[in-house]
Amino acid sequence: MARILVAEDDPSVRAFVVSALTMKGHEVLAAEDGGLAAELAEEEQGRFDLLLSDIKMPIMDGIALALEVASKFPHMTILLMTGFADQRERAHGLDALIYDVITKPFTLADLLAKVEDALAGKPVEVVSLARRAMQA
């Protein structure tokens, strides 16, 4: 399975995400803000398959974290999370660096499906179209 770095400042969301990903067999390291996540990425020399980060966090937000991680570890897939529409808009400028943005609140199934798609490198447009067709 994959090595995943989670950056999330909300303790309950962080626990939910870590628990869900661990139960799926992934090795998960978690940080409570972007600054600590950047330090973990550096300490681990970028040995993560995926960075899953909230956008709005203290110390270093998810956008700054994504920029730093992408510049140092371009092989790492980056998936962002947010509950704020304005933050989602900020992330759209990073289309070349990030895989996608998950909108909070999300279900366990949504989270696991998006992480699986990101790890598999499935094109976001294809995934979105397929899901819409299944729901119709």
Rank of each mutant, 00 (worst) to 15 (best):
I63E: 02
A31E: 01
L29F: 11
L36A: 11
A41T: 00
E32L: 02
A66K: 02
G83T: 11
A37P: 03
P58T: 01
L50E: 04
L79P: 10
A113Y: 05
D95W: 06
G35F: 07
M57D: 09
A64L: 04
A37L: 03
K72E: 14
V101Q: 13
Q45M: 07
T103W: 09
L94T: 08
A109F: 05
F73E: 12
T103I: 11
F48S: 14
V18F: 01
D100C: 02
L36F: 08
A109L: 08
D86Y: 05
K104D: 08
A41R: 02
E68H: 05
K72M: 12
G25A: 14
R47E: 13
D95A: 13
K56L: 14
H26L: 07
P105W: 07
G46P: 15
G93F: 04
T107H: 08
A38D: 12
I59A: 14
D86C: 01
L97H: 11
G25I: 06
A37V: 00
P58G: 09
L97A: 06
T22C: 10
T103Q: 14
G46V: 11
Y99E: 09
M23T: 15
L67N: 11
I98D: 03
A30L: 05
L94N: 10
G34N: 02
A15M: 14
L36T: 07
E89D: 12
V18M: 02
A85K: 13
G93E: 12
A96P: 02
T82W: 02
L21C: 02
V17G: 03
M81D: 08
A113T: 06
D110E: 13
P58A: 03
D110N: 13
L97V: 07
A41I: 00
D33R: 04
K104W: 05
L97P: 04
G25L: 13
